[in-house]
Amino acid sequence: MTSPTLTRRGLLRGAGTASVLASCAKPNADDASNAPAVSDATAPAEIGPGAVSVAFNLNGKPATVQVEPRVTLLDALRIDLGVTGPKLVCDRGACGACTVLVDGRPRNACMMLAHDVAGANVTTIEGLGAGDSPSALQAAFVRHDALQCGFCTSGMLTSCAALLQRIGPNGAKLTAQTVREAISGNLCRCGTYPHVVAAVLEVAGATPLSKAAVTP
């Protein structure tokens, strides 16, 4: 399949790996609070255009991926690392289907380069709980039917998990309006929003919404 001749791309790929790996080996010691955009100050100012290695923590485990600098975090996760929970929907930060946590904050993985997360902690839906032992939030999503086709669910749930983390012990004070604010960047086409809000309020221990009626 691969061409036997040595190409410029191949040469860059070979040369780039060792040096960039070395720069990434130094863990990012920055306090998360003063590093909103994850970057490694020790990284070279210019890399590429061939594939270059980048290392970060993915769902609690070290991960390394070799991608061109132009490759988004989302593509690196989905194509190179096989982590397909986060979805590509709008490809421009409008829908939230690709939401992941970068150092605990919800971010659109389609709007970041893979090289932006060098040394950072990245958590995807897969890291929030496994199918056999779902988190309380995941279980509540299922119980309330906060999903239909499920394509927005990874991002939606990740945004909600970040909200619950932010609100901490004040869950009982959480209002439906706050939940709607928190997921206002997550689009759903099936219309799951009411059930998402209900699921989050229940997990937070807040007053539930009134339920729809069934007659007779």
Binding site: T84, P86, L88, I125, P134, Q138, F141, R143, L147, T153
Partner: peptide
């Protein structure tokens, strides 16, 4: 009754066409 495949959708394990990865 909650949907029987809900756990796959809330954990990122549901494989959509978009998620299919095959060798080569």
């Amino acid at each position: 009754v909650p949907r029987i495949d809900g756990h796959l959708k809330v954990s990122g394990q549901a494989v959509y066409t978009f998620d299919v990865r095959l060798p080569g």
